[in-house]
Nucleic acid binder design. Structure first.
Lengths: 167, 167
DNA sequence: AAAGATTGTTGTTGACGACAACAATTGCTG
DNA sequence: CAGCAATTGTTGTCGTCAACAACAATCTTT
């Protein structure tokens, strides 16, 4: 925190200071100081970036990260109940209802009444849903390449390794 | 965090498993498959965990991550305009309005009308705000220690290094 | 002085997490 | 076996947050 730009002075002078050693807060030279070194802050910014890139990269198919994760899990584990999917992805089952409403409305996913437990629904991808998921995965792979370009291939892998416990 | 991995394995005498076409899954054995290897997913889960720990660790002082970042930047750069703070932290200036309303209502931050540019406000910490921020930083440091315990000290540093470009 | 840009503000929209309540159904226990 | 507790899907509310849009007041530019 011992950055030189710390304010002993309290005058604003942001507009057009005399070109000198006067502090210029004008541009992107604002010191974050203590914020650097906070993992949460870096993670937050990075996640923002990632989600935006994901959304942009998959904009043509109109799929958001959460929708993608839901379809991926269902595709890999057909017949799961909503509860199981929600628990596995760490989302509320109340929230999953809306997600599935949307995906089902687009004929990508179907809820099949389970015979084993008549409370629950067995979730499956529709045939077009499976085809769509394959395309989503291709686009998601492109998105991953964007990440690799951004932070470096080996850094991305190191990151995945560090955070493997959170999946 | 979700903590979906709990001991269902000790449960005995389940209903007859996997007899028909639909496979039954225990909660623990659901494969994420393609989701593993997606940086965004790991980051999302990790950020959730971090924010919850931050909120919990600073619950006694009722400060959330964004509020903390705002106060930190103002404390390190007194006199900044709202626009400058918003741009530096990557938050909407519309959102910053509410954040400052709250912080100002708690007498932690004050908006001083700038004489240089009468549209803008020069942001400062109040005296109690400065004292409070010092305590917040102590608690935030404790939160960082929780992260280090979670992923390992060296992993946390590696992570900070990888994501340094996003601050 | 007029036109255009910036700053703070208000408001809206939508995604999202956290809860609470509820009906239907299942499981457990006495 | 009956009855009560737990689970599942659903609906609804609340609060946070990002992304826009519009606006008045105020610079800046021409």
């Amino acid at each position: 925190m011992a950055n030189g730009a710390m304010g002993t002075e309290t005058k604003a002078g942001r507009k057009r200071p005399a070109r000198g050693k006067t502090r210029r807060h004008d541009a992107d030279e604002i010191g974050l100081d203590a914020l650097v070194g906070h993992a949460g802050y870096a993670i937050r910014r990075f996640q923002l970036w990632i989600f935006q890139d994901f959304i942009k990269t998959l904009a043509a198919v109109d799929i958001r990260p959460t929708q993608y994760s839901v379809m991926t899990v269902i595709g890999a584990n057909p017949g799961l109940s909503q509860m199981a999917v929600a628990k596995r992805l760490g989302i509320e089952r109340a929230r999953l209802v809306h997600l599935l409403d949307s995906l089902e409305g687009r004929k990508l996913v179907k809820r099949v009444k389970s015979r084993d437990d008549r409370r629950s629904h067995a979730l499956h991808l529709t045939d077009p849903g499976q085809a769509a998921l394959r395309q989503f995965k291709r686009l998601a792979a492109e998105h991953e390449r964007h990440i690799a370009e951004k932070i470096g291939k080996e850094n991305r892998e190191k990151l995945l390794q560090i955070l493997a416990g959170f999946t």
